[in-house]
Design a protein around this nucleic acid. Structure first.
Lengths: 212, 212
DNA sequence: TTTAATTTGTGAAACAGTTCACAAATAATT
DNA sequence: AATTATTTGTGAACTGTTTCACAAATTAAA
């Protein structure tokens, strides 16, 4: 893909994911074109926002008509890196971890959970609903042979930083963290956090402060 | 609490949750005061950001010294609405739903999952690891008697909008949605989305576009 | 074919969020 | 008690994001 001239904002990337989902639905419903106006309406955004976001990556639309659904969907897939498969390892087979291991959406988008790790001997080796759990001590070796691109950390907060350090030292450059703690990683490692309590706290704030 | 004069930004609220967690840890480690400099360093923010965020809600610090840890923690808890308990209902006992039903962090922050619903007769009534599942058809009645404040939707995408409509019509004003779909709600209902695929897509984008 | 209606793509304007920089307040030191 | 060091709180400057508004391109209609 062409190198981007400008730094793309987090919000634009987030909306790209949203457009992608909308386009998948539009394709299923046999739409051939979609205008920025209609796409914005469906996703509660503004038409200008949609056009501006897309314009960072090129000119995909036709004036007077709109954007070609399938073409745009493919283009966004390319931008987001969804035209290839990604090898994912999941660490931690607690409540959240085992739910994620069986979450169907990941595979649909090309995220293959190839390895699942834990440090609990009772879980290791077990074949629970099709998941075989490996010993976390084998992480470095297995991550290398399976060419893991992305690691999901779903261990308790107090164990997370040590696991994270191990993951980083194995050369992994992208981490999705579910532990409610701020992990320290080097600058060349991309870290994203998914903290479900924070979302609930946001709702609590909104309920407590009407009009905000 | 005093009515806020300005609209508080999403990012400030998000960081408030982060400060709160940091302060809980600082209290545990017997810190009595913390400077904006040190707090910022721990959470990879800037001191000015920390001070500005807090200044929207009042003056909590002492010049030359910093902020009193416990006092500030309590103040933020009050701002976020964490000084009371919130009654939460969870809908959908699939992979994600049952993981959330057992997730300990929620209760720790005062979010009590009082009801769990599903439409699958095989799951209803079952006492799976301490969770009793109610029939979704009873939602309106039970939500009222249990005074539910917040609903978590964890059903498949295609079922989510209908469930959401039912929840809204029962008078619920705050929803946390895990289904990978953009739910339509009236303006007076606060909706937050937790889409785990989007986070992975963000990582895929970052890996595919180094330097962004 | 001509005219009217759409809709994109994009600079410019407006708005929002972050960082700077410094006076004021307090603590710590001499 | 006086001096020095620290740190807050906050306008102002800056930076980044969103919205506006319109020329240009194209489609649809007359």
């Amino acid at each position: 893909m062409a190198k981007l001239t400008r730094k793309i904002s987090e919000s634009t990337i987030h909306r790209l994911s949203i457009y992608y989902r909308a386009l998948v639905a539009l394709e299923r419903d046999n739409y051939t074109t979609i205008s920025s106006k209609e796409l914005a309406k469906r996703e509660k955004l503004t038409p200008a926002q949609v056009r501006k976001d897309l314009s960072f990556f090129g000119s995909f639309g036709t004036r007077g008509l709109g954007y070609p659904v399938v073409e745009l969907k493919n283009k966004i897939a390319e931008i987001l890196g969804l035209t290839r498969l990604w090898n994912v390892a999941l660490i931690g087979v607690g409540n959240i971890g085992s739910a994620l291991a069986q979450y169907k959406e990941f595979a649909k988008q090309g995220f293959n959970i190839k390895l699942v790790f834990d440090n609990d001997q009772r879980k290791i080796g077990s074949n629970h609903k099709g998941i075989i759990v490996s010993d976390i001590r084998e992480f470095r070796k297995l991550a290398q042979t399976e060419q893991i691109d992305i690691v999901i950390i779903a261990v308790p907060a107090q164990a997370a930083q040590a696991i994270c350090d191990e993951v980083v030292s194995a050369g992994i450059k992208a981490i999705l963290n579910f532990a409610p703690i701020n992990l320290k990683v080097p600058d060349d490692v991309i870290l994203r956090n998914q903290n479900m309590c924070i979302e609930l706290e946001h709702l609590a704030f909104a309920l407590s402060n009407p009009g905000n």
